[in-house]
Design a binder for these strands. Structure first.
Lengths: 94, 94
DNA sequence: TAAACTGGTTTATATTATAAACCAAATAAA
DNA sequence: TTTATTTGGTTTATAATATAAACCAGTTTA
C-alpha cells in the first residue's frame, strides 16, 4: 500500500535543499542557507549527505577572496526526488 | 519560504497511520500494522506519540477473548494533518 | 592590531526511529 | 495434560538522525 520514502529525502532540510536545486541550475551555500532558514552547521552536514548519495554535486571555489560552495542537483538526484514525491502522494491524498 | 513540517507527522510510519485514519471512522491495531507494514513494537510506540499529541485516541477493549486496540483520528489530528499536507506542498512542487 | 564578520566544517549531544526482547492470554499439537 | 505456538500487543535497548555549539581560516573594519 504505502511505498518506502527515501530517508535521505524525508528530512525537512534536505528536502528543502533538493526542492530548491531541482528548479535552478546551481545554488550557493549562502543562498541555500537563507532560503531554508537553516544554520550553517546543519546545512553543511546535510549537503554532505546529499552529495555522498550522489544526489548533488558540491564545488568549492572562491568568489573574490571568499570561499564559495556551489551545489547542483544530479540526474540521480532528480530521479530520486521525483520518485519520492510520487511515493509521498499516497500518504497525503485523502 | 518553506514552512515548518510538524515533526510528529513528518515520519513515514506516523504519516501512514494518519493517512489511513483520516479516511476511516476507526482502525484496529492489527489493521494499521498490516497496512503500514510495520512491526508491532514500532507501531505501538508511534501510536502512543500520536495519542500523546492528541492527534488520535486509542481505546483498548476485547474482541471475544483477544485484546483489541482501536484508533481514531481527532479533530486536532485532522487539522494537523491538513496543515502538514499544505506546508509540504511547497517542498514538492517543482 | 585587535575585534568582528564571512563562509564555512567538525564534533558533541539530544532526539528519533526501530528492532529485539519480552509478556499474558489463548489456541493447537503431542 | 503439558508444552509449544500464535495473537496482540508493550517495554527497553540500540542504532541512526538531526541539530546546535564550538571551532577555524581568512577578510574586513575600527
Amino acid at each position: 500500500m504505502f511505498k518506502e520514502l527515501d530517508p535521505l529525502l524525508h528530512s525537512q532540510l534536505r528536502l528543502g535543499v533538493m526542492s530548491l536545486l531541482i528548479s535552478m541550475e546551481a545554488a550557493e551555500f549562502t543562498f541555500l542557507k537563507e532560503k531554508t532558514n537553516s544554520t550553517a552547521g546543519n546545512l553543511s552536514v546535510q549537503l554532505d549527505k546529499l552529495s555522498e548519495a550522489g544526489y548533488i554535486t558540491i564545488e568549492k571555489s572562491f568568489k573574490g577572496k571568499k570561499p564559495l560552495t556551489t551545489c547542483k542537483i544530479t540526474r540521480k538526484g532528480i530521479k530520486a526526488f521525483e520518485e519520492y514525491v510520487n511515493n509521498l502522494k499516497d500518504y497525503i491524498k485523502k
